[in-house]
Design a protein around this nucleic acid. Structure first.
Length: 121
DNA sequence: TCCGTGACACAAG
DNA sequence: CCTTGTGCCACGG
């Protein structure tokens, strides 16, 4: 049988792209996540770049605006047409940004419950 | 099939 | 703290 079933119709194995969407989709309002964390949870922190691509191909169901880099800063590109619009969107959710457009990951970085330690902020 | 690009991360100085 | 260089993987032409 075909050993190499990719994102075919018979295989239930979701592609990296879908895994990213599912994870970002679990991010609650007022919380952010980094590319490295997403890639790491998927099994390879080096695939952080692929996460970016996955978000570029993400459906409207995925709040990609909650995905920031490991520095707590947004991509700052025309990912959404107008970066300011995106930044403001997070502020609307309760996230505070500095003049440099950076947010405190120590406060807003969200992690899945399954991988979250007992210590809570 | 090969090359270039990219919504990134990490190490070293 | 910042800057520079390198690595990894996938997609598009």
């Amino acid at each position: 049988m075909g050993a190499r079933h990719e994102q075919g119709t018979t295989t239930n194995m979701p592609t990296f792209n879908q895994q990213v969407h599912a994870l970002v989709r679990e991010v609650p309002t007022g919380r952010v996540i980094t590319y490295g964390v997403i890639a790491g949870l998927l099994g390879d922190p080096r695939k952080a770049r692929e996460v970016g691509w996955a978000l570029h191909r993400c459906p409207p169901d995925v709040p990609a605006h909650r995905v920031v880099n490991h520095r707590g800063e947004l991509s700052g590109r025309r990912a959404f047409g107008h970066p300011w619009h995106q930044q403001r969107r997070l502020e609307e959710e309760g996230i505070e940004f500095t003049a440099e457009g950076v947010c405190d990951l120590d406060r807003y970085l969200w992690r899945p419950e399954a991988a979250r330690p007992a210590t809570d902020v």
